[in-house]
Amino acid sequence: MRAFIVLWASATLVFFITRLVPGDPAEAALGGPGSQASEEAVEAVRRQFGFDQPLVVQYGIAMLSLLRLDLGSSYALRQPVATILLDAVPGTLVLAVLALLVAWILAIGLTLAQSQGSRIAARIGDTLEIVASALPHFWLATILIAVFSTALSWFPPVSTGTPTGLVLPVVTLAVPIAGFLAQVMRGSLQEALDAPFATSALARGETRVGLRVRHALRHAALPALGLSAWAFGYLIGGAVVVETIFARPGLGRTLLSAITVRDIPVVTGVVLVSALVYVILTLVTDAVTRLVDPRTAVGGR
Protein backbone atom coordinates (compact mmCIF):
# COMPACT_ATOMS: atom_id res chain seq x y z
CA MET A 1 0.00 0.00 0.00
CA ARG A 2 2.71 2.45 0.98
CA ALA A 3 4.68 1.40 -2.03
CA PHE A 4 1.66 2.24 -4.14
CA ILE A 5 1.36 5.67 -2.55
CA VAL A 6 4.99 6.44 -3.30
CA LEU A 7 4.51 5.43 -6.93
CA TRP A 8 1.33 7.43 -7.26
CA ALA A 9 2.91 10.52 -5.69
CA SER A 10 5.93 10.19 -7.98
CA ALA A 11 3.70 9.93 -11.02
CA THR A 12 1.71 12.96 -9.93
CA LEU A 13 4.85 14.96 -9.26
CA VAL A 14 6.31 14.11 -12.65
CA PHE A 15 3.04 14.88 -14.39
CA PHE A 16 2.92 18.39 -12.99
CA ILE A 17 6.64 19.04 -13.37
CA THR A 18 6.46 18.14 -17.04
CA ARG A 19 3.47 20.46 -17.51
CA LEU A 20 5.70 23.27 -16.25
CA VAL A 21 8.16 22.66 -19.07
CA PRO A 22 8.22 25.72 -21.30
CA GLY A 23 6.98 25.30 -24.86
CA ASP A 24 3.96 23.72 -26.47
CA PRO A 25 3.81 19.97 -25.80
CA ALA A 26 2.17 19.48 -29.18
CA GLU A 27 5.15 21.07 -30.89
CA ALA A 28 7.50 18.94 -28.84
CA ALA A 29 5.60 15.91 -30.10
CA LEU A 30 6.25 17.05 -33.66
CA GLY A 31 9.98 17.27 -33.15
CA GLY A 32 10.36 20.58 -31.33
CA PRO A 33 11.00 24.02 -32.76
CA GLY A 34 13.59 22.57 -35.14
CA SER A 35 10.85 20.92 -37.16
CA GLN A 36 8.74 22.63 -39.76
CA ALA A 37 5.37 21.32 -38.72
CA SER A 38 2.33 23.10 -40.10
CA GLU A 39 -0.37 24.66 -37.93
CA GLU A 40 -2.80 21.86 -38.88
CA ALA A 41 -0.34 19.17 -37.84
CA VAL A 42 0.08 20.87 -34.45
CA GLU A 43 -3.71 20.99 -34.03
CA ALA A 44 -4.05 17.31 -34.91
CA VAL A 45 -1.41 16.31 -32.39
CA ARG A 46 -3.04 18.49 -29.75
CA ARG A 47 -6.28 16.56 -30.20
CA GLN A 48 -4.54 13.20 -30.44
CA PHE A 49 -2.68 13.62 -27.13
CA GLY A 50 -5.54 15.46 -25.44
CA PHE A 51 -3.54 18.67 -24.89
CA ASP A 52 -6.75 20.64 -25.59
CA GLN A 53 -8.45 19.18 -22.49
CA PRO A 54 -8.39 20.89 -19.06
CA LEU A 55 -5.41 19.97 -16.90
CA VAL A 56 -7.47 17.93 -14.45
CA VAL A 57 -8.90 15.80 -17.25
CA GLN A 58 -5.42 15.31 -18.70
CA TYR A 59 -4.19 14.27 -15.27
CA GLY A 60 -7.03 11.80 -14.86
CA ILE A 61 -6.39 10.30 -18.28
CA ALA A 62 -2.68 10.04 -17.53
CA MET A 63 -3.27 8.26 -14.22
CA LEU A 64 -5.84 5.89 -15.70
CA SER A 65 -3.49 4.86 -18.47
CA LEU A 66 -0.76 4.31 -15.90
CA LEU A 67 -3.07 1.93 -14.06
CA ARG A 68 -3.41 0.02 -17.31
CA LEU A 69 0.43 0.08 -17.45
CA ASP A 70 0.17 2.21 -20.57
CA LEU A 71 3.04 4.68 -20.61
CA GLY A 72 2.15 6.24 -23.94
CA SER A 73 4.33 6.75 -26.98
CA SER A 74 7.65 8.51 -27.36
CA TYR A 75 7.49 11.78 -29.30
CA ALA A 76 10.90 11.36 -30.83
CA LEU A 77 11.36 7.63 -31.25
CA ARG A 78 7.89 6.74 -32.56
CA GLN A 79 7.73 3.73 -30.27
CA PRO A 80 5.77 2.86 -27.17
CA VAL A 81 7.59 4.07 -24.07
CA ALA A 82 7.22 0.62 -22.52
CA THR A 83 9.21 -0.94 -25.36
CA ILE A 84 11.96 1.64 -25.03
CA LEU A 85 12.18 1.11 -21.29
CA LEU A 86 12.19 -2.67 -21.58
CA ASP A 87 15.18 -2.36 -23.89
CA ALA A 88 16.98 0.06 -21.59
CA VAL A 89 16.29 -1.32 -18.11
CA PRO A 90 18.34 -4.55 -18.17
CA GLY A 91 21.61 -2.80 -19.06
CA THR A 92 21.30 -0.28 -16.25
CA LEU A 93 20.06 -2.84 -13.77
CA VAL A 94 23.01 -5.17 -14.37
CA LEU A 95 25.38 -2.23 -14.07
CA ALA A 96 23.83 -0.89 -10.87
CA VAL A 97 23.49 -4.26 -9.13
CA LEU A 98 27.08 -5.22 -9.88
CA ALA A 99 28.30 -1.77 -8.83
CA LEU A 100 26.41 -2.04 -5.56
CA LEU A 101 27.92 -5.47 -4.88
CA VAL A 102 31.43 -4.27 -5.64
CA ALA A 103 30.85 -1.19 -3.51
CA TRP A 104 29.76 -3.38 -0.60
CA ILE A 105 32.82 -5.59 -0.93
CA LEU A 106 35.12 -2.58 -1.08
CA ALA A 107 33.41 -0.90 1.85
CA ILE A 108 33.51 -3.97 4.09
CA GLY A 109 37.13 -4.57 3.21
CA LEU A 110 38.06 -0.97 3.95
CA THR A 111 36.15 -0.96 7.21
CA LEU A 112 37.67 -4.16 8.51
CA ALA A 113 41.16 -3.20 7.44
CA GLN A 114 40.91 0.05 9.31
CA SER A 115 39.38 -1.27 12.49
CA GLN A 116 42.34 -3.65 12.82
CA GLY A 117 45.05 -1.14 12.23
CA SER A 118 46.51 1.82 14.01
CA ARG A 119 45.07 5.29 14.28
CA ILE A 120 47.21 6.38 11.37
CA ALA A 121 45.76 3.61 9.21
CA ALA A 122 42.30 4.76 10.21
CA ARG A 123 43.20 8.33 9.29
CA ILE A 124 44.47 7.28 5.88
CA GLY A 125 41.40 5.13 5.30
CA ASP A 126 39.16 7.97 6.34
CA THR A 127 40.85 10.34 3.91
CA LEU A 128 40.65 7.75 1.14
CA GLU A 129 36.94 7.36 1.71
CA ILE A 130 36.29 11.08 1.53
CA VAL A 131 38.39 11.40 -1.60
CA ALA A 132 36.61 8.43 -3.16
CA SER A 133 33.20 9.88 -2.39
CA ALA A 134 34.23 13.22 -3.91
CA LEU A 135 35.34 11.75 -7.25
CA PRO A 136 33.13 12.71 -10.16
CA HIS A 137 32.21 9.67 -12.26
CA PHE A 138 33.30 11.23 -15.52
CA TRP A 139 36.75 11.91 -14.14
CA LEU A 140 37.24 8.48 -12.64
CA ALA A 141 36.04 6.86 -15.86
CA THR A 142 38.57 8.80 -17.90
CA ILE A 143 41.44 7.82 -15.61
CA LEU A 144 40.39 4.17 -15.62
CA ILE A 145 40.18 4.13 -19.42
CA ALA A 146 43.56 5.83 -19.75
CA VAL A 147 45.23 3.35 -17.39
CA PHE A 148 43.49 0.02 -17.90
CA SER A 149 42.46 0.35 -21.49
CA THR A 150 44.86 2.57 -23.37
CA ALA A 151 48.04 1.90 -21.38
CA LEU A 152 47.59 -1.67 -20.13
CA SER A 153 44.98 -3.02 -22.61
CA TRP A 154 43.37 -5.10 -19.88
CA PHE A 155 39.77 -4.05 -20.41
CA PRO A 156 37.90 -2.59 -23.38
CA PRO A 157 36.98 1.10 -23.07
CA VAL A 158 33.49 0.62 -24.45
CA SER A 159 30.84 -2.01 -23.92
CA THR A 160 31.47 -5.15 -25.94
CA GLY A 161 28.66 -7.41 -24.83
CA THR A 162 31.17 -9.52 -22.89
CA PRO A 163 31.80 -9.49 -19.12
CA THR A 164 35.17 -7.76 -19.53
CA GLY A 165 33.35 -4.77 -20.98
CA LEU A 166 31.51 -4.38 -17.69
CA VAL A 167 34.58 -4.08 -15.49
CA LEU A 168 35.46 -0.43 -15.98
CA PRO A 169 31.91 0.98 -15.82
CA VAL A 170 31.13 -1.08 -12.71
CA VAL A 171 34.28 0.06 -10.93
CA THR A 172 33.62 3.66 -11.92
CA LEU A 173 30.19 3.54 -10.35
CA ALA A 174 31.27 1.51 -7.32
CA VAL A 175 34.21 3.55 -6.01
CA PRO A 176 32.41 6.75 -4.93
CA ILE A 177 29.52 4.86 -3.34
CA ALA A 178 31.98 2.54 -1.56
CA GLY A 179 33.49 5.63 0.02
CA PHE A 180 30.06 6.58 1.37
CA LEU A 181 29.19 3.13 2.64
CA ALA A 182 32.56 2.72 4.35
CA GLN A 183 32.17 6.06 6.12
CA VAL A 184 28.81 5.05 7.47
CA MET A 185 29.87 1.53 8.40
CA ARG A 186 33.05 2.53 10.18
CA GLY A 187 31.19 4.84 12.49
CA SER A 188 28.71 2.20 13.54
CA LEU A 189 31.40 -0.48 13.74
CA GLN A 190 33.22 1.64 16.28
CA GLU A 191 30.01 2.10 18.25
CA ALA A 192 29.34 -1.65 18.14
CA LEU A 193 32.86 -2.43 19.31
CA ASP A 194 32.39 -0.07 22.23
CA ALA A 195 29.06 -1.67 23.14
CA PRO A 196 28.73 -3.96 26.18
CA PHE A 197 28.03 -7.07 24.10
CA ALA A 198 31.46 -6.74 22.52
CA THR A 199 33.18 -6.88 25.89
CA SER A 200 31.14 -9.87 26.95
CA ALA A 201 31.91 -11.68 23.72
CA LEU A 202 35.59 -11.10 24.25
CA ALA A 203 35.20 -12.36 27.77
CA ARG A 204 33.60 -15.53 26.38
CA GLY A 205 36.84 -16.14 24.50
CA GLU A 206 35.89 -14.73 21.11
CA THR A 207 38.92 -13.58 19.12
CA ARG A 208 39.23 -9.96 18.00
CA VAL A 209 38.80 -10.95 14.39
CA GLY A 210 35.88 -13.21 15.20
CA LEU A 211 34.23 -10.45 17.16
CA ARG A 212 34.47 -8.10 14.22
CA VAL A 213 33.32 -10.54 11.57
CA ARG A 214 30.64 -12.39 13.52
CA HIS A 215 29.12 -9.71 15.67
CA ALA A 216 30.15 -6.13 15.19
CA LEU A 217 30.00 -6.15 11.40
CA ARG A 218 26.34 -7.09 11.52
CA HIS A 219 25.65 -3.96 13.48
CA ALA A 220 27.87 -1.92 11.29
CA ALA A 221 26.20 -3.15 8.13
CA LEU A 222 22.71 -2.14 9.26
CA PRO A 223 22.86 1.59 8.58
CA ALA A 224 24.68 0.97 5.34
CA LEU A 225 22.00 -1.54 4.35
CA GLY A 226 19.40 1.08 5.00
CA LEU A 227 21.34 3.23 2.58
CA SER A 228 21.28 0.68 -0.20
CA ALA A 229 17.99 1.76 -1.72
CA TRP A 230 19.23 5.33 -1.69
CA ALA A 231 22.56 4.19 -3.10
CA PHE A 232 20.77 2.50 -5.94
CA GLY A 233 19.15 5.77 -6.90
CA TYR A 234 22.55 7.41 -6.75
CA LEU A 235 23.85 4.70 -9.08
CA ILE A 236 21.04 5.23 -11.57
CA GLY A 237 21.95 8.92 -11.57
CA GLY A 238 25.59 8.02 -12.08
CA ALA A 239 24.54 5.76 -14.93
CA VAL A 240 23.66 8.84 -16.98
CA VAL A 241 27.34 9.74 -17.07
CA VAL A 242 28.80 6.23 -17.10
CA GLU A 243 26.58 4.96 -19.91
CA THR A 244 27.50 7.96 -22.02
CA ILE A 245 31.22 7.47 -21.54
CA PHE A 246 31.28 3.68 -21.93
CA ALA A 247 28.69 3.73 -24.73
CA ARG A 248 26.35 1.32 -22.97
CA PRO A 249 22.65 1.27 -23.74
CA GLY A 250 20.56 2.00 -20.67
CA LEU A 251 18.13 4.16 -18.73
CA GLY A 252 20.64 6.97 -18.15
CA ARG A 253 21.31 7.58 -21.81
CA THR A 254 17.64 7.21 -22.62
CA LEU A 255 16.85 9.91 -20.08
CA LEU A 256 19.58 12.27 -21.25
CA SER A 257 18.56 12.10 -24.89
CA ALA A 258 14.90 12.42 -23.97
CA ILE A 259 15.68 15.56 -21.96
CA THR A 260 17.57 17.20 -24.82
CA VAL A 261 14.64 16.78 -27.20
CA ARG A 262 11.91 17.32 -24.56
CA ASP A 263 10.52 13.83 -25.08
CA ILE A 264 8.20 14.07 -22.07
CA PRO A 265 6.62 10.57 -22.18
CA VAL A 266 10.06 8.95 -22.07
CA VAL A 267 11.25 11.23 -19.25
CA THR A 268 8.14 10.31 -17.27
CA GLY A 269 8.71 6.64 -17.95
CA VAL A 270 12.32 6.68 -16.78
CA VAL A 271 11.44 8.52 -13.58
CA LEU A 272 8.65 6.06 -12.80
CA VAL A 273 10.90 3.08 -13.40
CA SER A 274 13.49 4.56 -11.09
CA ALA A 275 10.81 5.13 -8.44
CA LEU A 276 9.58 1.57 -8.88
CA VAL A 277 13.07 0.16 -8.50
CA TYR A 278 13.53 2.26 -5.37
CA VAL A 279 10.31 0.95 -3.86
CA ILE A 280 11.16 -2.67 -4.64
CA LEU A 281 14.65 -2.26 -3.23
CA THR A 282 13.32 -0.74 -0.05
CA LEU A 283 11.18 -3.80 0.45
CA VAL A 284 14.15 -6.05 -0.19
CA THR A 285 16.49 -4.18 2.15
CA ASP A 286 13.77 -4.30 4.80
CA ALA A 287 13.67 -8.05 4.52
CA VAL A 288 17.46 -8.30 4.61
CA THR A 289 17.62 -5.94 7.56
CA ARG A 290 15.26 -8.19 9.48
CA LEU A 291 17.55 -11.13 8.75
CA VAL A 292 20.73 -9.36 9.75
CA ASP A 293 19.52 -7.27 12.66
CA PRO A 294 20.18 -9.26 15.81
CA ARG A 295 17.28 -7.52 17.54
CA THR A 296 14.70 -8.57 14.98
CA ALA A 297 16.38 -11.83 13.97
CA VAL A 298 15.93 -13.31 17.44
CA GLY A 299 12.16 -13.46 17.49
CA GLY A 300 11.14 -9.89 16.83
CA ARG A 301 11.32 -6.75 18.86
Binding site: V6, A9, S10, L13, A229, W230, G233, Y234, L235, I236, G237, G238, V240, V241, L255, V270, V271, S274, A275, Y278, V279
Partner: peptide, 9 residues
Protein backbone atom coordinates in the same frame (compact mmCIF):
# COMPACT_ATOMS: atom_id res chain seq x y z
CA UNK B 1 9.10 10.17 -2.79
CA UNK B 2 12.11 12.47 -2.64
CA UNK B 3 14.35 9.46 -2.18
CA UNK B 4 12.80 7.90 -5.24
CA UNK B 5 14.19 10.79 -7.32
CA UNK B 6 17.95 10.33 -7.29
CA UNK B 7 20.20 13.40 -7.44
CA UNK B 8 21.08 13.54 -11.10
CA UNK B 9 17.59 12.49 -12.13
Amino acid sequence: VLFAFPALL
